[in-house]
Design a protein around this nucleic acid. Sequence first.
DNA 1: GTCTATATCTGGATAGAC
DNA 2: GTCTATCCAGATATAGAC
Lengths: 239, 239
Amino acid sequence: MKFETFKKMVSLSREDICRELFLAHRERIKIKKERVAVGNLVKIFEAALAISNRKGFSAMSLRELSTEAGLSMGALYTCFSSKEELLDLLQKLGRTMVMKVLLSQIDGIADRREKMKRAIQTHLYLSEVMQPWFYFSYMETKNLKKDEQKKAIEAELFTEKVFAGIITEGIADGRFRHVDPDMTAAVIKAMLQDWYLKQWKYGGRRVTVEAYARFLFDVVDSYIVKPLKSKRGTHGRHR
Amino acid sequence: MKFETFKKMVSLSREDICRELFLAHRERIKIKKERVAVGNLVKIFEAALAISNRKGFSAMSLRELSTEAGLSMGALYTCFSSKEELLDLLQKLGRTMVMKVLLSQIDGIADRREKMKRAIQTHLYLSEVMQPWFYFSYMETKNLKKDEQKKAIEAELFTEKVFAGIITEGIADGRFRHVDPDMTAAVIKAMLQDWYLKQWKYGGRRVTVEAYARFLFDVVDSYIVKPLKSKRGTHGRHR
DNA sequence: GTCTATATCTGGATAGAC
DNA sequence: GTCTATCCAGATATAGAC
């Protein structure tokens, strides 16, 4: 699947995401009209992610946020009750989204190799659509309070389990070699994360998401799949 | 090489490192006696890394640092002139060290495959010895001022070039497949970094550095090396 | 060289006018 | 619902005693 196709398919525009969040947190938000609340949330989240990804969340002052979002201090505090709550809201924003999309995309694919390819692709495409959020989430996890931190770690382990699961299945039906599923899933995750953590690198080298997805699948594939004498090397090219 | 052997060999005790730094920054440090200055630097750096890795550098107050280091506010300011300078000093601390050790360890190894193994191992062992610094450096790069940030990025690209170089050599002498050296080096780096960025994960799973090094080499090797019919699969085990 | 005390500023949060 | 003005906790940095 092309990235553009994916982008349209999972129509998670910023508004949609924020509307969902607004509905989930109705009680805690003082604004009553949906239109206004969602509009403000969008502006705040976008600005907060931008500033945080430049200098870190804790170095971002709320005054700074208010000017970048084009709202006053008072207006900010109608959407959240403390800077810490804003952090929690931001984290929650992406987590459920990621799991939902990832699972829906690989559900029902029988061929393990194909499933692996699709999982890699989906994770990369997702992190491309929501790049600021992924980066933010990675960098700020350690600044959450204990229980929120735990949820973030669970989310990381959850996606890892998805990959480990595919590998285990592949080993069971004999198409994959006897690699360590957990270790392999761990490094796959590391390579997936590099895509959104080092945008400056891949962007600068003009590597597209599609190209990175193909490349990454090649690396993984050549490690886990049992070599068929003649097949080896046919999928070794990229770009 | 075993990790313990490596640890003794590169005898970079905290004191040694700080002494070097002290000598390099004599002018800017008010304390004149080497013994005292180095002792304080060690305490300060150790405490600063510990706190920063818990909550982030910008969230660390100097009061906090002074108590954790067992020094007064006044004493801190005899070692650096501002919080920002402390950040720069910390960053500089590890960079040169890494390059020096990494290059010295792989210098003069003719066999490309062996060289790759050694480079992976050395990088992992280094990041194990200096874990707090590696983690810190990764997380705080974006908070540096422009020119310091540039140096940090150069350092990242430098180690990446080391790996890309080995791959290019291996392709040239015909032992490696025609993979993309830059892309491959990039994901190798990503997997190396995962080791110190996700200590909670690997520590919790009781994975040792040696095991991770072997595993990682297997993954890389199976991707870049041309398969000899009979050889494939012989180095696919780990643990 | 190291300490305590303090000047000065910045940032999170809120009250009350519009 | 949004804005401005303000409170005050806590941060950096320094002065001066020991």
